[in-house]
Simulated assay, not measured.
Amino acid sequence: MKPGFILLIMGIALLLLGGIPAVLNFMDNQGFPYPLPTTFFQAHWFVMVYGFFLLLIGNELLVALSNEWRGTSAPTWLIVPFGILTLISNLLDELNNPLSYYLVIVALVLLINYSRVYLSPSRIGLKPTAYNYLLFYTLIITSIIVSFQAVFGLPWLGLAFPALTIFAVMSRDLGLVLGGKRVNQDEMTLAYVSLALGILSYGTVISPILIVIGWGLSLHSSGIPWSKGRLYPRIALTTAWTWLLISALVQGNYDAYIHSIALGFLFNTVFGVDSVLIDMLVGITGKRLSVKPSYVPLILLNLGLVMRVAFDLGISSPLLLLSALLQGIGILSFYVLTFRQVIPQMRKVDKDETLIVKGERTTRS
């Protein structure tokens, strides 16, 4: 089994370990009428950010992007230690050992060191773009944030890592998922800076203003709602950006703010750019894959999140007890439905076939 695939499996395992207890805890906090197991695996936010998302983003940098930029993935001797460090850091955090943060920093340093290759021309002579630089800067910013968190905590700062990575990726990959739409990279860079400052200044009066500015600039530069291309990613990404705007408007409620970004923005984006996940699997397996999306995960996730925010804002109804459960099922069903289609193809499809994502021939630029 290739190291990149192991990283992917580890990431999904941590997603389950961090997500399932969180669902049960939130249902218990809502007053679920029956006892629920709420005392196991309490490191929810750390596992999601520095477990699941760190492995997902690390896989993109060490495998998918590396195959595109260098023609080969990162060496096994680098991928394996990165995965081990990430796994051990999450286990230590569950044990309330502060060394967990320092192992995350070491894992990030490995990514930073390897990502220097993206600041040089590619194997076919392509020059680095905003995408390359923003990914690199995101890793540096995140390492500083983790150093700060090792002393002061403040879990909400961790949102900057996956959120800024998405803005970096969007500066290039939106062209793939939105039918060749050209993204204004200068404007996207300004949006990136504004979002970074908005997240880092959470709790101040300027934070929602900066997030709204970042939202507006990124939406204008990408043209997501009015772009051409496939309907599914347009709906998912428009929904994601809607939740990003909502996060700025509900900052007075911590849970609503955190999960508007963590679930609404991040996971709707993951759903919408599932072609990036396919690219990752192509990089791991060398095979050409196709996936037909389902709207079921999208509907379940967002219905559950609307119910959660309604509860956070003071609305009371027994139906809202289903909010966390619907969110969890939505996320889990996305990966189940995706891998249900992908795994058989990983065994059968010829490597020389044209890459087809959801019935359309695509190329990576």
Rank of each mutant, 00 (worst) to 15 (best):
R230C: 00
Y137G: 06
S290A: 12
V212D: 02
G214C: 04
P162D: 09
S122V: 07
M188F: 05
Y254F: 15
A324T: 00
S333D: 02
I84E: 01
L17P: 03
L14Q: 14
G31C: 05
L303V: 14
I331G: 03
S73L: 07
P208A: 08
G359S: 04
N90C: 13
F161K: 06
S100Q: 04
Y137V: 13
L277Y: 08
L14T: 10
E94M: 12
F46L: 10
V282W: 14
I199A: 07
I329R: 05
L7I: 05
P297W: 05
G252L: 03
R234T: 03
E94I: 06
S122G: 11
F265H: 03
L62N: 06
F339Q: 06
V193L: 14
R288I: 02
L17W: 11
L200W: 03
G4W: 09
I112P: 00
G4H: 10
L62R: 07
L197H: 03
G252V: 05
L219F: 03
I224G: 03
R308C: 00
A130S: 12
V291Y: 15
S143H: 00
S194W: 04
L78E: 04
I79K: 10
Y254M: 08
R288Y: 04
V270D: 00
S115T: 10
V309N: 05
Q30D: 03
T362L: 15
N25E: 08
M280Y: 09
L87C: 12
I246W: 02
I284E: 12
L244R: 06
V183H: 01
D350K: 15
P121F: 11
I144A: 15
S194G: 01
T269Q: 01
L7P: 10
M188L: 13
N97V: 10
I329C: 06
F46D: 08
P155V: 07
L325D: 00
N96T: 09
I145L: 07
V273K: 08
D93L: 13
V80E: 01
Y101S: 06
L55F: 13
K228H: 13
G158Q: 09
L159Q: 05
L61R: 09
A150L: 06
Y295K: 05
G203Y: 07
A163S: 15
A191R: 10
L298M: 13
L300Y: 06
K351V: 12
L56I: 10
I84G: 03
S143N: 03
Y257D: 03
S147F: 13
L7M: 14
V177W: 14
G4N: 09
G286H: 08
R347G: 00
D28T: 07
F267G: 01
R123Y: 11
F82I: 09
Y295I: 13
T354A: 15
S333C: 01
N132Q: 09
Q30G: 14
P318S: 05
R230G: 02
F52V: 03
A130V: 14
L103E: 03
I105K: 10
F311K: 11
S115M: 07
A163R: 02
Y131T: 03
A236H: 06
S294L: 13
L54V: 02
V80S: 04
K351T: 11
L154F: 10
S115P: 02
K348A: 11
A22N: 11
L325C: 01
G314M: 08
P98D: 08
S73Y: 02
A13M: 14
P297H: 09
I84Q: 02
M280P: 00
V151K: 13
V63Y: 01
E353C: 09
